[in-house]
Design a protein around this nucleic acid. Structure first.
Lengths: 177, 177
DNA sequence: GAGTAGTGCTTCGAATTCGAAGCACTGGGG
DNA sequence: CCCCAGTGCTTCGAATTCGAAGCACTACTC
């Protein structure tokens, strides 16, 4: 029971940063989603997936890598990749070294769609997000948020949280403190 | 005058700010959601609603105000408020001056739950979000994000997007000609 | 080479989400 | 007073989401 800690009120700045972060990301995501729907009939997740794949050297990623990149449940990923595959925008194939792995590759049609929606996407970003910011603001935002991102990524298990089977499992070897 | 605008590539800093923003908010939201589920059996939206109500002077808000505060669809709001009401955490009542309005009020039980989950919520925020940041970082984050938020709120209609606005709705009936 | 734990992905059922359509009421004109 | 457009909220159906359970395979141990 470690909870005799001092009561934790947050600074106004801390609260402000938190609320503004949530609000901004929600609003942004919402607007972007509409844009993507119009321009290419893509959901935001689908766009993120295609963009991630398009960014990869050979246009391929493992399912797990995709799930890690986009914060998403495994099952949801399976569903969306299924949709993208059905639409012909990606292809699924076996993984080279690991027979249980699945490699997802973006198709030419996928790159097409990506190219079609990207300009509008950037437009929305500019108008809604970047417009009121000075270059230095953008810099500082990028810097600070990157620090937070790295911190968050370092804390929890990246994906595949330990699967609780029956009763308490002993801690596996490799105990780092 | 259509849009012969130059192709718009984004700075690395701009891209970085955008991606980090999305990623951070997703990760944060995800973790917070788990915490809330454990501590008080609340979804994130439900927590936001209770928090908004708890913040109001008399613990009451109109549905529309709630939908504005939390970025959310009207129907989703109806659903979640219904859940909260069923759980006894809020009460619905008629609106004072507008008979089509509905006033939502947080109950004592609602405040209870809020008080129970809040400490853990703040804990998560500190550990995941604030920990790696210097006070000046938090300040700058709050400042910049607030600017963006205000900008975003100013652009589109706050809520209730015009139901059939847009095209030719211009001609008033009185055109005596 | 068999056994056991751990990982990669999918299937399944249940809950949540949204947009469109509908109902109830307000406000401005004729 | 009645009509019409506009707003506030809910209902409806369809799509998306997640977690738990399951199957297939790898890695490690003996």
């Amino acid at each position: 029971m470690t909870e005799a800690e001092p009561p934790p009120p947050l600074d106004p700045a801390e609260l402000g940063a938190y609320f503004a972060l949530i609000e901004v990301s929600s609003l942004l995501r919402h607007t972007v989603e509409q844009q993507l729907r119009d321009a290419g009939d893509l959901s935001y997740v689908q766009f993120q997936l295609l963009a991630t794949l398009g960014d990869a050297a050979d246009g391929s990623r493992r399912m797990t890598e995709l799930a890690d990149g986009v914060v998403y449940s495994r099952s949801g990923l399976t569903y969306q990749v299924g949709l993208l595959e059905k639409a012909g925008l990606v292809a699924r194939g076996p993984s080279a070294e690991d027979d249980r792995g699945v490699t997802v590759t973006i198709t030419a049609a996928g790159r097409d769609v990506l190219a079609r929606v990207f300009p509008g996407h950037i437009d929305v970003l500019r108008q809604l997000f970047l417009e009121p910011l000075a270059p230095e603001d953008v810099d500082s935002l990028a810097r600070v948020l990157t620090v937070v991102r790295d911190h968050m990524r370092a804390i929890p298990p990246r994906s595949a949280k330990p699967r609780r089977k029956g009763t308490a499992r002993q801690s596996p070897p490799g105990g780092g403190a």
